[in-house]
């Protein structure tokens, strides 16, 4: 959370060096926490690391001028989804504390695949975007523009999405119901 606030302050100064510095901090925090999350031997710790990653990503959104998305990220991910995941941990009676058995025997293949994908993606991004720069004057996009877009151009997808959420709600109840 502090990262997000700091990033906000950074924007007001609009000095790209400072912003870059904040980005570096956020990126490092995000990647390290993500790595800790997928390697941690404690389920609750993993969930907390995910929390850090998601906050850092929200900071990145602020740097990119997407304040509404950042706010939604905080509300939905940090607020709702994390609670849901922690409930999942609780209801499945995961061991609180270290559990040596969280990884499977295939982790090395998984690591190989992940590293391979990263290499391919990095290479192709480098080839594709080279040194494309973001616009220098990064003004935050007004929320009004976002809402105009959602309730104008993308009204039908939006309605479809609401239907999807309803279906997911009913589906979750039906699947998890005890009978």
């Amino acid at each position: 959370m502090t990262a997000a606030i700091l990033a906000q302050e950074a924007l007001s100064r609009t000095e790209s060096g400072v912003v870059n510095g904040f980005f570096a901090v956020l990126a490092i925090v995000a990647i390290v926490s993500a790595l800790k999350m997928v390697t941690s031997s404690n389920v609750v710790h993993a969930a907390l690391y995910l929390l850090v990653v998601l906050s850092a990503v929200a900071g990145v959104y602020v740097i990119l001028g997407a304040e509404f998305v950042a706010a939604t990220q905080v509300l939905v991910y940090l607020g709702a989804i994390m609670v849901l995941l922690l409930f999942g941990v609780m209801l499945t009676r995961a061991k609180i504390g270290t559990d040596t058995d969280l990884d499977n025997e295939q982790r090395w293949i998984g690591a190989l695949v992940g590293a391979g994908m990263l290499a391919v993606m990095t290479y192709s991004l480098w080839e594709g975007f080279g040194d494309d720069k973001l616009p220098d004057t990064m003004v935050p996009q007004p929320t009004q523009a976002v809402s105009d877009s959602i309730f104008g151009t993308y009204l039908v997808p939006f309605e479809a999405l609401s239907l999807l959420l309803l279906a997911a709600l009913i589906g979750a109840v039906v699947v998890a119901r005890r009978d």
Partner: peptide, 20 residues
């Protein structure tokens, strides 16, 4: 499922590499 996923992601990466 995990092995299927591994195969899927692995082949996707491989295919992307081939394309590149």
């Amino acid at each position: 499922i995990r092995q299927y996923a591994t195969l899927m992601f692995g082949s996707a990466a491989l295919l992307a590499a081939v394309f590149i």
